[in-house]
């Protein structure tokens, strides 16, 4: 018998601590598969963030540096500049990348740092208890916006991919989702392209992945998966926003 699907080698055997139905597990698998595909496991260093993704070092069989909240792009910049031959990726959530670390990600992107960024957008602060994030959708109730996010008080949800795609230093920027098998295939391709962008030294490879957070949305896992298509994708359109082609040097 031949394997159709087995656990990627870059994932350790430790069970995930995530809540039932959380998409972090799927996204961890996509990243691990990309590491296996390019054979960069022995020279990969990841910069983990603060949030539900904080235990990255337990789940990936690669070296991981833990960063202060939001500062993973700054930490990764240091790693990549001192060790240009290493493969460096960052894995951040929306509270981490879009709120606390906005300055770090924008300047790392603008400097054209050769990094791969995996940005998990679930419209809420997960680990700290479901507070409103900059990506929280209008009308969405959270623990700090119990009557729903309101424009007059809280502003509009931030679109990070569109924003970063404007910058010259970004080689690849895409937004994908992992809620259906077809979109999962697209997401896999986007993660692979973001890895390639770094290996070809074309600047920052940025992938935003729309994901669910059943616990903080107060939904069953399957309902939460359906909400991505119903509410998130209309506001956060999927697609490749920037791709630096062929011989275009940075």
């Amino acid at each position: 018998m031949k394997p159709v699907f087995v656990r990627p080698q870059s994932l350790t055997d430790k069970p995930f601590h995530f809540c039932p139905g959380c998409h972090h597990g799927v996204i961890h698998r996509l990243v691990a598969e990309a590491i296996d595909r390019f054979g960069v496991r022995e020279r990969t260093i990841a910069a983990a963030s603060v949030g539900c993704s904080v235990f990255l070092y337990d789940y990936f069989d690669v070296d991981v540096v833990e960063s202060p909240h939001g500062r993973a792009p700054a930490v990764a910049t240091g790693i990549k500049r001192t060790n240009p031959d290493k493969f460096v990726f960052i894995y951040q959530g929306d509270g981490d990348l879009a709120a606390i670390g906005t300055a770090e990600i924008i300047h790392a992107a603008n400097r054209g740092e050769n990094l791969t960024v995996v940005f998990v957008n679930n419209t809420v602060y997960g680990m700290t208890g479901g507070q409103m994030a900059p990506t929280t959708l209008l009308g969405q109730p959270t623990t700090t916006s119990p009557y729903g996010r309101e424009f007059g008080q809280d502003g509009y949800p931030i679109k990070m991919t569109e924003m970063l795609a404007q910058l010259e230093g970004v080689g690849f920027a895409a937004r994908v989702a992992v809620d259906t098998p077809a979109r999962l295939t697209q997401a896999r391709k986007a993660v692979l392209r973001a890895f390639e962008t770094q290996l070809e030294e074309k600047g920052m490879g940025f992938v935003e992945i729309l994901s669910s957070c059943p616990t903080n949305w107060g939904m069953k896992p399957v309902e939460a998966v359906r909400r991505i298509e119903r509410e998130m994708i209309p506001y956060f359109p999927l697609g490749v926003y920037k791709e630096r082609k062929g011989s275009d040097a940075l």
Partner: peptide, 19 residues
């Protein structure tokens, strides 16, 4: 049919498919 959609969608990566 061994299409492995269950395994790909599984957030815990607990399903393996052999064919």
């Amino acid at each position: 049919t061994g299409c492995a959609i269950c395994a790909r969608m599984c957030p815990e990566v607990v399903i393996e498919v052999w064919k």
